[in-house]
Design a protein around this nucleic acid. Structure first.
Length: 446
DNA sequence: TCTGGGGTCCTAGGACCC
DNA sequence: TCTGGGGTCCTAGGACCC
């Protein structure tokens, strides 16, 4: 076909570009983390419950807790005040991930084209499946919902419509345990009740811009001419405009992303600090956490960035290429220090630091280059295998850089429990010593 | 209104090469 | 040496999402 007569090209084009109306389902688990906890611990069913206890804020609230006014992001002391009987649970990501996998495998029984959009929501392209299932799209969605409830013991809300953008609006329309199917004829009924911030892809900035032009609903938006939208919002806005009009331009992407693109660790500290050593210690601690995660996923970073966030949410950042892929904090620390020195300002109050490892690849380079130091790299691998082992036994950050030692005392104070005290004890022991191979071996033998 | 932490993608501009 | 066009790659920053 390539290079064939222009005539053939003209004939094939309309066929290739024709878009059949699609039927896309969006499945959204209801209060996922909290629901999984209730499925795993049936005695908690019907009780107000939140997860995220280890972070001090609510990451998911069960519907019983929501009914009592508990929302996502609320600090735990608030929860205790609003709803004293509420059960506070730490997050158990391994179990959530397991349920997530099972959720998607149920979806794939209905359609091979399933996109794992996030841990608790996904899209399935149902186009053309009505005959196979002898059922309407709504009934297929219902069957999916029932299979999930029967096999996982959690409820999901499903939206079905002509595009991903519409399906996502539909699934939010009735929650929990809802089904909402909207055909082309009824799109306007959905969109006239949809405010701009509810549209997938419209954040605060876009909403503010559109409101300046007198728009208030999604229906207002799709009623404007394409040229208006293109000029104002560019490509992204254009796609949203098409999707909301029922033309599917964002296909269901069934590919599993090959690997994560970046790993970041951010920590806000209260009170904010002007102290150079303190802020540096925080950044270094972020680096150690990021490296731990990288090693857990068997990834090595080729790019490093650091950002410091000031009191008024201003951020200054900087990034650099690493000379070779690595997940060893002692290799990366000098580069981090350089970035830090470049963006740290004296007499400025900082409230957070963040470290990002990016351009992730396989940890072992296929070949050492002329300038690499293979002996050091291999030693480092052994060293951090030992560090990770110690962490598995005694807790995260059991062994760490001397520079970040000043953090452990305050940190331990916020928590309690035997494990933490044990960790504090160990931290106290090692705090003033730089990590080194012999010391570690010795410690691990004990 | 923004809590707080972990991510991705798009765009504009500059450097560099042919 | 100047002029101009075109392509690619990298970087910084913005915006959004869960």
């Amino acid at each position: 076909m390539n290079g064939a007569s222009p005539n053939a090209d003209r004939m094939s084009r309309p066929l290739l570009l024709r878009r059949w109306p699609r039927a896309i389902a969006h499945l959204d688990a209801d209060a996922f983390f909290a629901s999984v906890e209730q499925a795993v611990h049936p005695e908690l069913k019907g009780q107000p419950l939140v997860t995220g206890a280890e972070r001090g804020i609510v990451s998911a609230a069960s519907y019983e807790a929501k009914a009592r006014g508990v929302k996502r992001g609320v600090p735990l002391y608030e929860v205790r005040r609003i709803c004293p009987e509420c059960i506070l649970m730490p997050s158990d990501y391994e179990t959530y991930a397991l349920y997530s996998k099972r959720l998607f495998s149920i979806m794939r029984r209905f359609s091979p084209l399933v996109e794992e959009y996030s841990i608790d929501e996904g899209f399935a392209d149902l186009t053309g499946l009505r005959r196979l299932f002898h059922a309407s799209y709504r009934d297929i969605a219902r069957q999916m919902q029932e299979a999930v409830a029967a096999e996982l013991g959690i409820t999901v809300s499903v939206g079905v419509s002509l595009s991903k953008g519409l399906a996502k609006l539909c699934s939010k329309f009735r929650k929990p345990n809802g089904i909402t199917a909207v055909s082309g004829r009824h799109i306007h009924l959905l969109l006239e009740r949809t405010t701009l911030p509810q549209v997938w892809g419209f954040g605060p900035n876009t909403v503010a811009l559109l409101e300046k032009h007198g728009l208030t609903t999604a229906l207002d938006f799709i009623s404007r001419p394409k040229a208006f939208v293109s000029a104002l919002l560019g490509k992204v806005g254009n796609e949203i405009w098409l999707e909301l009009r029922g033309e599917s331009v964002a296909p269901v992407n069934a590919e599993i992303p090959s690997r994560q693109a970046s790993i970041s660790k951010t920590k806000t500290f209260t009170p904010p600090s002007m102290d150079r050593a303190q802020v540096w210690a925080r950044a270094l601690r972020n680096l150690e956490s990021a490296c731990i995660k990288a090693r857990r996923h068997r990834l090595a970073a080729q790019k490093l960035s650091l950002f410091l966030r000031t009191q008024d949410f201003d951020g200054s950042g900087n990034e650099t290429k690493l000379p070779f892929p690595t997940s060893a904090p002692n290799e990366i620390a000098p580069h981090l220090k350089r970035l830090f020195d470049a963006c740290y300002r004296a007499r400025v109050l900082y409230r957070a630091t963040g470290v990002v490892l990016a351009d992730l690849t396989d940890p072992r380079p296929s070949q050492f280059s002329l300038f690499d130091d293979p002996k050091r790299q291999i030693e480092n691998e052994a060293l951090f295998a030992a560090v990770d082992e110690a962490a598995a036994r005694y807790g995260k950050h059991t062994i760490f850089f001397a520079d970040s030692a000043c953090l452990s005392a305050q940190h331990g104070g916020e928590r309690g429990g035997i494990a933490q005290r044990k960790q504090q004890h160990l931290e106290g022991e090692t705090a003033r010593q730089h990590i080194g191979l012999p010391l570690l071996r010795h410690r691990l033998k004990k």
